[in-house]
Structures are given as C-alpha cells and as structure tokens.
Design a binder for these strands. Sequence first.
DNA 1: CCACTAATACTCAGACTGAGCATTAGTGCC
DNA 2: GGCACTAATGCTCAGTCTGAGTATTAGTGG
Lengths: 318, 318
Amino acid sequence: MNATPRVIIGLSAVVVAASGKGPEVLLSGSPGAIGLPFGSFDPIGHRTFELAVRDFVTSQTGFALGYVEQLYTFGDKGREAPVADMGQSSDADRVVSVGYIALAGSIDEGQRRAGVWADWYRFFPWEDRRSEAGLRAIDLLLPDLKAWATTTERQSRVAMAFGLHGQSWQESQVLDRFELLYEAGLVQEAQRDRAKGQASAAPGAERTFVGEPLVSDHRRILATAMGRLRAKIRYRPIVFDLAPARFTLSELQDLVEALCGVKLHKQNFRRTLERSGLVESTGALHAETGGRPAMLFTRSATSRQAGASGLSLPLAKR
Amino acid sequence: MNATPRVIIGLSAVVVAASGKGPEVLLSGSPGAIGLPFGSFDPIGHRTFELAVRDFVTSQTGFALGYVEQLYTFGDKGREAPVADMGQSSDADRVVSVGYIALAGSIDEGQRRAGVWADWYRFFPWEDRRSEAGLRAIDLLLPDLKAWATTTERQSRVAMAFGLHGQSWQESQVLDRFELLYEAGLVQEAQRDRAKGQASAAPGAERTFVGEPLVSDHRRILATAMGRLRAKIRYRPIVFDLAPARFTLSELQDLVEALCGVKLHKQNFRRTLERSGLVESTGALHAETGGRPAMLFTRSATSRQAGASGLSLPLAKR
DNA sequence: CCACTAATACTCAGACTGAGCATTAGTGCC
DNA sequence: GGCACTAATGCTCAGTCTGAGTATTAGTGG
C-alpha cells in the first residue's frame, strides 16, 4: 500500500496586475526555466486551497492578493512539471496542479520592480490584436496551422478558434487557440513533451516558435487565466480589481483593450459604461493628455455588490 | 517524510440526464447516505482525470458518458467526505475532490431503472420557479434568511442571490444561494459539519430543513454543476447533449425550462431558436398532443461546431 | 488669440426583445 | 361531414440596444 505513488498537489497562481502599459503576470524561476509562482499544498497546514495560495504568494513575493479564483485542475500525465521542480517529490509521484488566478490590482513602479513581471503577450503574441505585431504573429502561424488541418474537423476548429472564414474572433478563446497550437506542434512545449515521451530526445528540425515557452504546463494555465479573465470582464465588474481607485474613462478603456487584446469603439464604450451604473464621476478632472481634461471616475457602490454585471465590449471596426 | 498524510484525490461526477419529466442526476450510496457517484483517482492507471471519470462511471453504472467537463476542485477541510466512505484511506489522509459534470443524454425507461436517478430539485426545491411548490420553498426560507442577514453586506448578498428588492432572479446563481443557506445554517449539511467540528454532537433544536441533504459536500458539487449547466446553456449549444435526437420545439422548451427552473415565453423562444440556426426541421410531424401537430427538429450541423453559440432565454412574465 | 488634442455630446438607422393577437392543422365527438 | 378543442405556428408593434458617424467643447502651449 505504501508502494502506491503519492499524489502531490501543486498550486500555481497567475497573478495579474495592470501597470501603465497593460496586463502583466508575476513570474518565478531562473532564465531558461521561467514559470508561474507555485507551491505545494500542505495537507495539514492549510484549511482551504485559496488560503494556501494567498499564503505562498505572499511569502514568496511579498504581495497581498485581492481577488482570487480557482481556474482549473490540471492532471495530465506528460504535461506536468519536470519532477526536479517540485522539491521533495520523488520520481514515482504524480503531480496534480490546481491553477488559480489572482488580481493584484494596479501596481506602482516600486512594486513592479519588487517582482519579476512580464507582459503576458510575450507568451501569446497572437492574442494581441491591437497592434500590427500581433496580427503578424497570426500570419506567421496560419500556414503551419493550415498544413496541420488535414481533416474537416481540424479545419473547422482552426476556423472557429482564429476567426477565419467569416467567423468572428472571440477574445476569450485563448485556451482553445493554445491547445490547437500545442496539438499542431507549433509551440515549444509540444516538442518538449514529445521528446520526453520518446525518451530519445531527437533534436528534430530546429524551428523558431512564436511566443516564449514556460516551464511545465504553465503556459496552458496562463492561457486558461487569460481566457477566464477576458470572459469574466463581460459579466462581472472585475476590471475594477485591476484599475486604480480613480481613473478616466479612456484609461479604463485602455485597460480593457489591453486585457482583451482588441480595440473598442470609444463613444459606445463610454455610453454603455455610463448607463451600466458601474462607475460614478468624482468631481475631479485629469488634465495631462494635452487635450480636453477628462473626468475622473470611481467604481460605484453597486459595482461592488455580489452579482453586479460586467462591461459590454463594443468592438471598433478593424 | 512518510508521516505526512497522503492526499487522496477523489473524483465526483454529476451525471445529468433528461427523462420525460426533467433533469435527473445519478446517485449512489445507501438510504440515509446518498451521494454522487465517486471514485478515487489512480495515479498510475489514469493518464487524465477525464478518462478516469469516464472509466469509473461506466464501470459503476454501465453508462457511457457523452459530454464531460471539469467543474471545480473542492478541498475545504471540514466539508469533505466522512473518511469511512473513501475505501482504503486512513484517518490522517486529506481528501480533495475534483468535481465533474457529465451529460448522459436523454435516457429511456430501461436505462432509467438501471441506475438510481433523482430529480435534482429534490435537493434544491427553491431552484424550481416553474411551480408553486418551488416558490413556496423560498417563502419558507426567507424569514430565516432575513433573520440571519444582520449586516448590510449579508442583506445585499441575500437580495442579489434570491432576487429581492427589484433584483432579478439569476437562474445560474445556484451555488451562491446554496452557500448562503449553508452559512445561515439552513441546510442540514451546515449543522452536520458544525457538529463534526465541535466533536460533541449537540442535538440542537430539531428543525426541518428544506431540501434533502447529500453525503459530504456533494450537494455543493451538485449546486456547482447546476449553475454551470444553466449558465452554459446561454452560450454553448449544450442542451442538445441532453435532448433526444429529434424533438419538437415545445419539448426543447420544456427541457430548457426544467433545467433552468423558469418559464419561458413560447413565441419568443421559438423565434430566437429558429434565427439562431442551431436547429433544422426534419420533414416529420409529431401529432400526439391533441393540438396542431408539431414539426420535429434536429440540431443542425453548425450547432456541433466548436464555438457555436447557445440559446437565448426569453423569460415569460410572472 | 490661435492651433492642436482629447474628451464629451448628439444623431440615426438597423437589429433585437418583450408582449400580445391571429391563424392553422390536427384530434375526437356528434 | 361539421364542430369544438388544443397546441403549434405566424405576425405585428413599440421600446431598447448597438454600430457608426458627425459635431462640439475645454484644456494646453505657443
């Protein structure tokens, strides 16, 4: 009975913060083996997972987390962490990781420098459709994806995920896109996991991949987090956990655009936002843009109620 | 190192099927200790959780599952299964359970009799707002809830969850409502867990609870499943995994109403459904209702594509 | 006082939604 | 065969929401 391998529960956290430039995630690890912050779950010490996550993130990075939410539990054999990473585990152990997303709010330069933060689009260049660079990333991938899509089922999946053939781009399908790229062997993790499976690490055709890899299945966890966050913006007032206490509507829009990787229609965004009752104007103005000064807003009391609704995302054409 | 308690991963499955009457879930256990089907995860034998779930449900009940989706991983100390349930585990072990929802499609009488199925509203009478009985269940709970809601924060949570004070009832907030009732001590599990914590099982004031309890935290898992399913109906064509291959629009509407526990506006339901392109008419008619015969429909090819959208739910007034 | 830049205001048409009224095609009875 | 009855299906109308523009305003820096 003791011969049965133990199950180790790892907790991984996608800690998201918004700096001036856009969404950033907290990383840990050494160059070449970068990953999300993680810790293993102590069955004695911790009453709930969520408390454990708050605990280890704070002790590892000094950050106190605000909003925390469980994402998904990942247990696929062959995609888990290289065993060496997990401290006291042994070869026979099975690592299961429970992924969490945590919002660290808006951070200042000091806090930013205290941790290792990275723009999340470094790992998912194709998810940023605000810039030419992101659109180019997709153009780079498409030929290979199309070559891989030999069946109509695959073709349809590619079309839906990447918004081809008149399908619209769904910003929250981050995981679908990543899994497609993984299956098609177009992200580095796929090659790594296959090599592990075959034991003989055939070097294979050296190719350059689009987007940086992460340790273990952490890029998959990050994709899950991005997708969840992007979806949740639409039905829960969750942006405000990333925005500063006072903001102009343009700043809020920039934040939402950065998170969702799309451009929004300015006037319509402001219209639905004001109607929603989620924000209320402080009297103050903010005059540092060189144009007409903007009204500063705060989230309203109703936006804090459990069950408050989210934002609508009026896309800008093109 | 062997003194550290092991972590046991339990898998629980909410297997949903639609019989003629409405949504039913598969149960296991003996009278007085009814729960969801569950099995423990074998770290060696199973490559992924999902495969493990399919495996143990099929071996325990003979059912082949269709759609399977991970719900949530529950790990709170104090709400987990009584240790005796888990077979070979010992007292010191920590049980973590990964909940899944599975759709078993539409079942016939034979299949129905082969397993122990129960209308899910037995456990959540207040979730069924189609009938007077369900509305009465809420009336029974409200006085106690209001008595419990001593702070404005609690009052606001109650109002949002149960659609008080002009808030609208959100059919997918099943878990919020259940957790509120748990916190307020209005479901039997709350009393049970408290007694466990205090070791001295004080009998307390014997009260009658609304809705039947389940073993461990299985009612919470079921609530999560119901909420997920109800929410997902709106954005994925998931009803069709519960509906028979051919159905009339009224039958489909009845199914949706049963799942969501609300009444829908007939003409508007049919209108949005036909516009959505999710169904297509077979030529056949179905004339057994005593009225004008209804057209039989099937789900369309596009409804099977990954990324297809869900149904809109036009509520009927009152 | 002027040019410039964002922010904010206003408008309009088309699509979608909630509600209700009207028509139709079966069944079963006389 | 005709009639009452019952669902299913069809149609209409007003109000709201959304996409897309055009227009105006209040600062800043010469």
